[in-house]
């Protein structure tokens, strides 16, 4: 079947890209200034200890051996232990802790963006070249132009500092403590790490409300940006579809009003929008770095920033590789979805 071949081909193309990504991440450690052994032991440690640790870490081995070892470890998702930030903990466990936090933020932001962006784009297209359309377009363009690290603080100032409707930072009220597992039919199960899900699993509705109010402003911050991109794509995609031959046929057959026509086109117009949503989700993970910093959320973004500042190389490598992997996989998923929706792509 053609689509199976298409997916297989795309998966094979992933191999060299991921190998390149891994190589780049390996290079980070070796080009960055600072001796890892010195970073772990601190500035005051005696030179002999540093030399010994270098030996233990395998830093004196030839580069190709270190590279081979890194690739084998990376394939098993093993990046060793954090040097500084979570000293002694494996990078894998740190990432497992932090990824759900960032993912939750990005998901809610994306939902806000889709719920606002698609209707806005459709309205703009239906009312093309009217005042509504112009306002919508300038609004969407402004949404892209406003950086997250400005819209976030402005939302905090308005809704938190002055109106006191939403909290300014954190993920949940500071007086709330959650169990670290939940019970289903007598079994103890691990939590997801996403606080709006976990509070529900634990049946703590007060805590859930707190979690949702904490997430509101960060999700809006990401959502505004995402809304702007989605509505622009939705608008131009609608207008593109309306020009197609089959739309002309529909009109010739007597589908009179512009709105009926637009209804016809909506499904098809969604296809490129799905691409934008997918591609954008990857960069939302990047944007989460800024949002987390503004709102003091302890996700993977804030952790990456402090890992870079303190030369915690294994943590930097693990985070960067994970992000790239997620980003690439999301893009692949988007391509595959797209090829199902529009089989012409496969050629």
């Amino acid at each position: 079947m053609a689509s199976k071949r298409f997916i297989l081909k795309r998966l094979l193309l992933l191999v060299p890209v991921l190998l390149g990504v891994a190589t780049f991440v390996f290079v980070i450690l070796h080009l960055a200034s600072g001796d890892p052994a010195r970073v772990i032991l601190g500035q005051r440690a005696p030179q002999e200890q540093v030399i010994q640790l270098r030996q233990e870490l395998g830093l004196n081995d030839p580069l190709y051996i270190q590279y081979g070892r890194f690739l084998v470890d990376a394939a098993q998702f093993d990046f060793g232990e954090s040097y500084v930030i979570a000293q002694g903990n494996s990078v894998r466990s740190v990432l497992a802790d932090k990824i759900p936090v960032t993912l939750e933020l990005a998901l809610y932001g994306q939902v806000v963006g889709i719920l606002l962006g698609i209707p806005l784009g459709v309205i703009s297209a239906v009312k093309q070249d009217t005042l509504t359309d112009h306002l919508g377009r300038v609004g969407a363009l402004s949404g892209i132009s406003v950086p997250i690290y400005w819209s976030g603080p402005m939302l905090i100032l308005a809704f938190s500092t002055y109106l006191s409707i939403f909290p300014a930072s954190g993920r949940i009220g500071s007086t709330i403590f959650l169990d670290n597992h939940w019970t289903l039919l007598g079994m103890q199960l691990p939590l997801t790490g996403m606080v709006t899900v976990d509070t529900l699993l634990l049946g703590e509705f007060g805590a859930w409300t707190s979690a949702v109010t904490h997430l509101f402003l960060p999700a809006m911050t990401i959502g505004i940006y995402s809304m702007a991109l989605i509505s622009r794509m939705m608008r131009s995609s609608m207008l593109e579809v309306v020009r197609q031959d089959y739309m002309r046929t529909a009109r010739a057959k007597g589908q009179g009003s512009k709105i009926t026509i637009m209804k016809h086109g909506f499904r098809n117009a969604l296809i490129p929008v799905i691409t934008v949503i997918g591609i954008q989700f990857g960069s939302l993970l990047g944007g989460a770095v800024l949002t987390e910093t503004v709102f003091g959320i302890g996700g993977i973004g804030t952790m990456l920033v402090s890992a870079i500042q303190s030369n915690d190389f294994p943590l930097v490598q693990g985070t960067v590789l994970t992000f790239a992997l997620l980003f690439t996989l999301v893009n692949l998923l988007v391509d595959i979805t797209y090829s199902y929706l529009d089989p012409r792509i496969q050629q």
């Binding site: 390149g20 991440v25 290079v27 080009l31 960069s283 993970l285 770095v289 960067v320 992000f323």
Partner: peptide, 14 residues
């Protein structure tokens, strides 16, 4: 293959 801000951060790490 990297989200742009993340690649920038990784390069700054170097």
């Amino acid at each position: 293959a990297f989200p742009s801000l993340l690649l920038a951060l990784a390069l700054v790490a170097i």
